[in-house]
Design a protein around this nucleic acid. Structure first.
Lengths: 206, 206
DNA sequence: TGCATTCTAGAATAAACGTACTAAAACTCA
DNA sequence: TGAGTTTTAGTACGTTTATTCTAGAATGCA
């Protein structure tokens, strides 16, 4: 009934992610996007609306392919292992990120979320989702005795979320292994069952 | 010998800080700066060079008046109190920041530092300075027995720096007291001397 | 084979951008 | 007071921005 697209939407989206991830929303021009996606501005506007809508699609794509995927891979592991694996992957990725792109979600949290309610909700919801992953694993660990009950699961989960954000920020400016691992290690140690005060109450499950 | 300035450089700098802090570097136009500082573009270029140089001056001013000042106020307190007071102030400020401006240094860490070696060094050095403040207080606490020796001071300091960055990011998207305090509380609890394993070696100083 | 539709390419648009220029005004020192 | 200097105010400059328009090419269905 009509002429079919010559470009693959998925491929274009991935190129857009690369652009926005690397330079952020404002510093990425439509010209950059045209060059990097290989399609013309007209096709781009026709297919995605405007620059902001394309950014939204790119961010969604990043979240799905990067974050949601990582959570899915970790959430089936044993509690402590899940959390440790999650952070190990983050540190490894951060150290391998020689362009200092960081995490596109964290970048969005600082660049677009504070001034745009739509994006703010998107980012906030995703942060809740990550927090829920931590919460689920902490609760499971507290239930099976592998994670301390000296502090409420909710608090530990929030702490882990905060540490995650911290690693993502620091990695963009000081991508040093000792620093990033130093940030994470105490958080993991904190989860350990010490046998000291506060653990007694946790001796009997539930 | 010449006509004196009609504007006060300090006042202009403070207005520039407000602009850049609120909207970041890219989203702040020279017209915004002209409007907000009250001086003309010519005066602005004459006095500060170009937009980037003005941003640099504004960031320096922010660092000096906001961060360095806070560290100065806290570093004379007792070890645990210093760290607790530091975070209390951060959380209070974050919750009172209804424009979601966050911390200008953290914003710079994500917007300009990754692509500009000059700014990257400035931000990195400042992060080291904050880390050193934590390190100094942790060491003092370990020396007088008020902070755990279960983990090396360097690691605890790095962890605290990471948590600080995390709070600053989260506050811009989810400025909820429970969340921010939940991020911080376990970090403070971590510093406590538990009397459990690892503390024995710390019984005798040095 | 044609008609309707939707694609592509590239030029064109208007607004906003950082910056530079011109001229007048205001000050200090001789 | 006048020479010299630097600040002002306002405008103008050349880019770059996001977006749209005008063609023409390519397809599916009748």
């Amino acid at each position: 009934m009509a002429r079919p697209r010559e470009f693959d939407e998925q491929t274009v989206l991935e190129a857009a992610v690369r652009c926005f991830w690397h330079r952020g929303y404002d510093s990425t021009s439509v010209r950059d996007l045209v060059e990097s996606t290989g399609i013309t501005a007209a096709s781009l506007y026709n297919a995605f609306g405007d620059k902001r809508a394309l950014y939204r699609r790119a961010l969604d794509h990043y979240i799905e392919s990067s974050i949601a995927d990582r959570i899915e891979r970790c959430e089936t592991l044993a509690p402590r292992a899940a959390i440790a694996a999650f952070f190990e992957e983050i540190v490894a990725r951060s150290l391998g990120d020689h362009e200092h792109k960081g995490c596109m979600l964290v970048n969005a949290a600082l660049e677009v979320a504070p001034h745009d309610p739509g994006f703010r909700k998107l980012v906030a919801d995703m942060l809740v989702h990550i927090e829920d992953f931590f919460l689920d694993r902490v609760r499971a660990g507290q239930a099976d005795g592998t994670i301390t009950r000296a502090q409420p699961a909710e608090m530990l989960a929030r702490h882990l979320l905060g540490v995650l954000m911290g690693v993502r920020v620091l990695a963009r400016v000081r991508p040093e292994r000792a620093l990033l691992e130093g940030v994470v290690a105490p958080a993991l140690a904190l989860l350990a069952v010490t046998g000291g005060q506060g653990e007694d109450a946790a001796a009997r499950p539930q």
